[in-house]
Design a protein around this nucleic acid. Structure first.
Length: 329
DNA sequence: ATAAGTAGCCGCCAGA
DNA sequence: TCTCTGGCGGCTACTT
């Protein structure tokens, strides 16, 4: 009887992501979802996402930019989806009853519902967002609030995650949200890999946390570490050893490294270098300080160490970078 | 640019 | 039985 009390996420059956296609949809937003979840990524293993597009209306569907889409599947795809993404919606329109029903059913089943940009209007129209926190593009937040007064509309965030209902702001914030979902499903390292391939910046870990609103145990751990990350950023100039950091986090060195990697996707040493190079970059752009002084205030022992890492990570030597990008007059 | 010294990192595994 | 922790050895790669 106690054989299978719950189907834990550990079971490696691939998550099934379905995007909703509708007439006059946002081509870019659909593209984001298809790119992240629909691209072949054999290197990610056999349990990577299965992806499909469900047309919620009949006929060829128009997309921004004068494109027309022919979609082979319909709402039946939603029945087995673990994640359903609305990459936008015609804000004033009520969804077809069959669509609203399918979304409510999916939510009741435990599937995630995700919206990008104006897609929040579709989720709101199902009533599922009542009493929940949600967001949308900044141009539409007032309209969303007026049209759906029971929704707790959150402003100035990239995305909101409330009990399996994920809503994101402008189109590009949809990328951040999709990467967040990858992180939840496959871990921070996998999310970084996908981000790298998209050539978008991987999450900057501290800033990400103000958008994480789901009280999951794992995220709580991330939150605990995040305060340490902030403190580390505040004293980048000082030398930091694993032993000292682990002591500060009240963990053994081994566990500290393990947890750190789970939370950020990279090991502490690599993270420090990335932060230090980033700081050096700022100082090169905005101050006339000598390379030696910059090296010192970023925590590089010598200017040679700074040059080495800077070149490795930015691609050009510090002086070249400054000549090209300094904003100082 | 190269070489030596050292800390970081991670696979492995036993114990909780 | 299963998941998590943390010590050890040794390779990697950063610093000087």
């Amino acid at each position: 009887v106690a054989r299978r009390p719950r189907p834990p996420a550990k079971r490696r059956s691939p998550p099934r992501v379905v995007a909703l296609a509708y007439d006059r949809m946002g081509t870019f937003e659909l593209g984001v979802v298809a790119e992240i979840f629909g691209l072949e990524r054999p290197e990610m293993g056999p349990s990577w996402y299965r992806f499909g597009v469900a047309g919620v209306e009949p006929g060829p569907l128009a997309g921004t930019g004068g494109l027309r889409f022919v979609v082979d599947s319909g709402l039946e795809l939603l029945e087995r989806a673990t994640t359903i993404v609305a990459p936008g919606w015609r804000r004033g329109d009520r969804p077809p009853p069959a669509l609203a029903l399918a979304l409510r059913r999916a939510h009741a089943r435990g599937a995630r519902l995700v919206s990008i940009c104006s897609g929040a209007f579709l989720l709101a129209a199902t009533g599922l967002l009542d009493g929940r926190r949600a967001t949308t593009h900044w141009r539409y937040v007032d309209e969303l609030e007026r049209a759906h007064p029971r929704v707790d509309v959150v402003r100035d965030v990239l995305y909101v995650d409330d009990h399996g209902l994920f809503t994101s702001a402008g189109s590009a914030a949809g990328i951040d949200l999709c990467l967040h979902l990858v992180r939840l499903d496959f871990g921070a390292e996998a999310a970084n890999t996908v981000a790298r391939r998209l050539v978008v910046p991987a999450h900057r870990d501290g800033s990400q946390l103000q958008y994480l609103e789901r009280p999951v145990p794992r995220d709580h751990e991330v939150g605990r570490l995040s305060r340490l990350l902030d403190r580390m950023r505040a004293r980048l100039a000082q030398r930091m050893t694993i032993a000292a950091l682990a002591a500060e986090a009240v963990m053994s060195e081994r566990t500290f490294i393990r947890r750190f990697k789970e939370a950020t996707g990279i090991a502490p040493g690599a993270w420090l270098i990335r932060e230090r190079v980033g700081r050096a970059r700022e100082l090169l752009e905005t101050t006339p300080a000598a390379i030696d002084a910059i090296a010192e205030s970023c925590g590089f022992g010598t200017a040679a160490a700074l040059r080495h890492q800077f070149h490795r990570h930015v691609g050009v030597p510090p002086t070249t970078y400054r000549a090209r990008f300094a904003t100082r007059t």
